[in-house]
Write a protein that binds this DNA or RNA. Structure first.
Length: 893
RNA sequence: GGGCGUUUAGCUCAGUUGGUUAGAGCGCGUGCCUCACAUGCACGAGGUCACUGGUUCAAGUCCAGUAACGCCCACCA
């Protein structure tokens, strides 16, 4: 047992313990050891990611759950890893290339991929290292990457199974296209944002019509008119009845296009006439199909106008828009411009405005997969916390659309589909491993699909691919399904929902039993933390300036279940100060036991030596253990943190340690030993309760105070078991001790106030033994703060009624009574009579109010018995108080 | 256009299945460098629980409506 230094040096201690934990394999998991499984997979951060507050919150919560289960003796596994993050990572490396003046095309596919892997080798471990400074207890031996061999095997397996079941198909549809990343996106990857745009009203002349005869259409994207192949109106729209079957002339282009009728058109919006551009709008595409319209794509991959745009070819889409509007204006086609607020999709990776575009892509048919996933949420096999997310999940599931899974990038799992190049064969097939020949014609001339899969196509397998699927094994059968998933709600569709579908489809069971969705970390103004806003707080800065424990404690304590949390740097003082407090409490204990061994593993208390204060702290400890268990079970982590905080600080340090100073400095060796026993028992269990939130500090104190007799590391120390009142009574802990101490506290407060306010000497108030006051002082008290008298009476009543000493105790009642009487002897009889009368009136009114409730048959019949009992007790207390007041009043001459 | 969340002390927020006198941290005021801790100790001030109506013996809590702020979803050009 080394002496603890005066200050806690987190910067040295935290890395020390983390290395020690890893060296001792304390986070290692082994399915073959059996027991009750508790398993969690981390939401894999992007391999390009750097640690931010969201990660810190997310991972701290998981660590709390995992560490507690480990202490409870579960066979615990927590799988860490990273996601290859297709587009994001490719973007990073492309930016790097750009600095060298090159593009990925200059390198070619193979060379480029080598560069990405090299990048990943060099920087890909960054976030994992950063995560370790938080102290999280993942089993690092299991670290996975979504492009590891095994996980890639899982991806190919899943693709082929779905392909064979015809749940994967290829087709030409309008998809969300990011012109900057040059790839298709899924619907979820296109983020809608309201923008202040315009609605341009454009005149489309009627062919061979009367002079000036035209149909006016309204559009938000005038540049797409170059690809128009029709104008549509609602068949019931009388305004356009006379144009039925006519042909219109496309402005600026001169192309002849038909006027068609389609129910899609809403006569109340705009002019009721819609320009139809099948290659650039999903609705227009559908209309084009219904009416067999030609499809004209007018844009290139990077959203410039192509040859089909004629004179506008080569222009950027927005430049083109400006030009088109100007030309329409000068040529008299522009009728008017309205401002118009509408939602525009943006790429979730680079925020470029998405261009709806006709393109051949791969899709997963989702409805068949969704069915089981809907059931699983409805029948509770998967539970969401907070529960409201169930509805959000179901809403999405029930309206699910097919998932566009192909991406026109290079970094990712390449689509395992092959095309035979033999012109006579042209066979297409999916294969788990690279084929040697075409299975149809046995030719060796074939090529693989150039696209890669959406990065989420590997993430949705994470809960079982990380345990070795598709291969069978002890890990998979023992740890799957995982127990809890902890994540933020923004990936509920991207990831959570899809994992549930994949788990049910490929494993036949849900991937996790419970999903806890925590809030978003925001800055003090409620804005999302982001680099561009410059408002982000780097968790590593907090670790440096405070400590990882302080970071963790503050985050957990400030985050109410599922609510967003607003953070500023000062808020981490909460955790730091708490850590300091505990550190000092430990130092105090160490100073007082002088290296003596204290039995903390299984102490036996002597009921004859336990004072009410000892009993009180023991009772409160067990109350706290119970509260912690309950709060963690219900994902109320802030309540859990506050329960430990409140107990350790205000009950243990402020009350018990202060109380203990007397016996510790006293001559009674037996008492002293007993107090140390109580203290160490309480403190060691408190450290256990706190360990899931503050792992480093608790480990340091565990060793510093010699608690290694319980367990070599607090990581494996047994989680405390709460004792109920009967069990505590067997130890000599009376439940009435709690009432006694709260009354004593009230009495002490009064005594201190009197001392402070009226200059009473310590001798007069020490141990509550008050000498009779001299008349002058008593008069001053009376004149200044007469209300003390009534407070004193209330306190003395409380003491008298709330505690029956189990054995002789330093009396609280008698000294208070002495104090009371000493003041009583020097009061103005008339004023006191008036005061007492007022008090009596108040008490009577209170009794009346309480009685009214008790006289109410409905209340007695319908309120819970415990509540009625409470009210009865209150009435009785009030009546006793009234009686005492009456006695006092009568005593005044 | 749908759905959800929030509104409680000067600030940031807790408040569980309705139940005795609505809590915490920070800040503020007063007194303390008391031999674990000034990153501290003790005491204290501060609240018509957004508004309106309803249900109930009882409402911060449940219901309906209103307002403000925020978030998510959505193929009205």
């Amino acid at each position: 047992m080394n002496e603890l230094p005066k200050t806690y040096d987190a910067k040295a201690i935290e890395p020390k313990w983390y290395a020690w934990w890893k060296d001792h394999g304390l986070f290692h998991s082994d399915a073959t050891r059996g027991g009750k499984p508790y398993s969690v997979v981390i939401p894999p951060p992007n391999v390009t990611g750097i640690l931010h507050m969201g990660h810190a919150l997310n991972e701290t919560i998981q660590d709390v759950l995992v560490r507690r289960r480990r202490m409870q003796g579960y066979n615990t596994v927590w799988v860490p890893g990273t996601d290859h993050a297709g587009i994001a990572t490719q973007n990073v490396v492309e930016r790097q290339l750009k600095k060298e003046g090159k593009s990925r095309w200059d390198l070619g596919r193979d060379e480029f991929l080598k560069r990405v892997w090299a990048w990943r080798e060099q920087y890909g471990g960054t976030i994992l290292r950063q995560m370790q400074t938080l102290g999280i207890s993942c089993d690092w031996d299991r670290t996975r990457f979504t492009m590891d061999e095994g996980l890639s095997e899982a991806v190919a397996e899943v693709f082929c199974r779905l392909y064979d079941k015809k749940l994967i198909y290829r087709g030409e549809y309008i998809i969300n296209w990011c012109p900057r990343c040059c790839t298709a996106l899924s619907d979820e990857e296109s983020e809608h944002e309201d923008e202040e745009g315009h609605l341009w009203h454009i005149r489309y002349p009627v062919k061979d019509g009367r002079a000036g005869e035209c149909v006016i259409v309204a559009t938000t994207r005038p540049e797409t008119l170059l690809g128009d192949t029709a104008v549509a109106v609602n068949p019931r729209d009388e305004r356009y009845a006379r144009f039925r079957g006519k042909t219109l002339i496309l402005p600026l282009v001169g192309r002849e296009i038909p006027l068609i009728e389609d129910d899609y058109c809403d006569p109340t919006f705009g002019t009721g006439a819609v320009k139809v551009t099948p290659a650039h709008d999903p609705n227009d595409f559908e209309m084009g199909r219904r009416h067999d319209l030609p499809v004209i794509n007018v844009m290139t991959d990077d959203a410039h106008m192509n040859e089909a745009a004629g004179a506008y070819a080569g222009l950027d889409r927005f430049e083109c828009r400006t030009r088109i509007v100007a030309d329409l204006q000068t040529q008299g086609f522009l009728v008017k411009v309205e401002s118009h607020r509408h939602a525009v999709g943006h790429c979730y990776r680079c925020h470029t405005a998405v261009e709806p575009r006709l393109s051949p892509q791969w899709f997963v048919r989702m409805k068949p997969l969704a069915r089981a996933a809907i059931e699983a949420a409805k029948d509770g096999r998967v539970r969401f916390v907070p529960e409201r997310w169930t509805k959000v999940y179901l809403e999405w599931m029930e309206n699910i659309r097919d998932w566009c899974i192909s991406r026109q990038i290079w970094w990712g799992h390449r689509i395992p589909v092959y095309y035979c190049d033999n012109p006579a064969c042209r066979h297409e097939w999916a294969a788990r491993t690279a084929p040697a020949e075409c299975p149809e014609c046995h030719g060796t001339a074939f090529h693989q699909d150039p696209d890669v899969l959406d990065t989420w196509f590997s993430s949705w397998l994470w809960p079982f691919s990380t345990f070795g699927w598709p291969r069978e094994g002890a890990d998979l059968s023992f740890y799957y399904p995982t127990t809890d998933l902890v994540t933020a709600p923004d990936i509920i569709f991207f990831w959570v929902a899809r994992m549930i579908m994949a788990g049910l489809e490929f494993m036949g069971d849900v991937p996790f039993r419970r999903v806890y969705l925590h809030g978003t970390v925001r800055d003090n103004q409620g804005r999302k933390m982001s680099k561009s806003l410059g408002n982000s707080i780097d968790p590593l800065d907090i670790v440096r300036d405070f400590s990882a424990d302080a970071l963790r404690f503050s985050l957990v304590a400030l985050t109410a279940t599922g609510q967003d949390v607003y953070i500023s740097k000062e808020k981490f003082e909460l955790g730091r100060n708490f850590g300091t407090k505990l550190w000092n409490a430990a130092r105090f204990m160490q100073m007082n036991q002088h290296g003596a061994a204290v039995d903390v593993a299984s102490p036996v208390f002597d009921p004859a030596l336990l004072t009410p204060d000892d009993q009180y702290i023991l009772a409160q400890l067990h109350r706290t253990i119970r509260a912690c268990d309950e709060h963690i079970e219900r994902c109320r982590f802030n309540d859990y943190a506050k329960a430990v905080y409140e107990f350790c600080w205000h009950e243990f340090c402020d009350w018990y340690v202060e109380y203990a100073k007397q016996p510790l400095n006293g001559a009674d060796a037996a008492r002293k030993a007993e107090v140390l026993k109580v203290m160490n028992y309480v403190f060691s269990r408190s450290l256990c309760l706190l360990h899931p939130i503050m792992p480093f500090l608790t480990e340091e104190l565990w060793h510093g105070l010699g608690y290694t007799t319980i367990a070599e590391s607090i990581v494996n120390a047994p989680w405390p078991t709460p004792l109920d009142d009967d069990e505590l009574a067997a130890w000599g802990v009376q439940s009435a001790a709690v009432a006694y101490v709260s009354a004593k506290h009230a009495a002490m407060t009064l005594a201190r106030n009197l001392r402070a306010d009226y200059g009473l000497s310590p001798a007069q108030t020490a141990d509550f033994v008050l000498r009779p006051l001299d008349p002058d002082t008593a008069a001053r008290v009376q004149a200044d703060r007469a209300d003390y008298l009534s407070v004193l009476r209330a306190a003395s009543l409380q003491v008298e009624t709330s505690y029956t000493p189990p054995h002789p105790l330093p009396s609280v009642i008698t000294p208070l009574g002495t104090l009371f009487m000493s003041l009583e002897g020097h009061i103005d009889a008339e004023a006191e009579k008036k005061r007492l009368s007022e008090q009596i009136a108040k008490a009577q009114a209170d009794i009346l109010g309480v009685s009214r409730r008790l006289d109410n048959a409905d209340f007695v019949a319908r309120a819970p018995a415990a509540v009625v009992q409470q009210v009865r007790e209150r009435r009785q207390a009030l009546e006793e108080k009234l009686q005492k007041l009456q006695t006092l009043l009568d005593a005044i001459p």
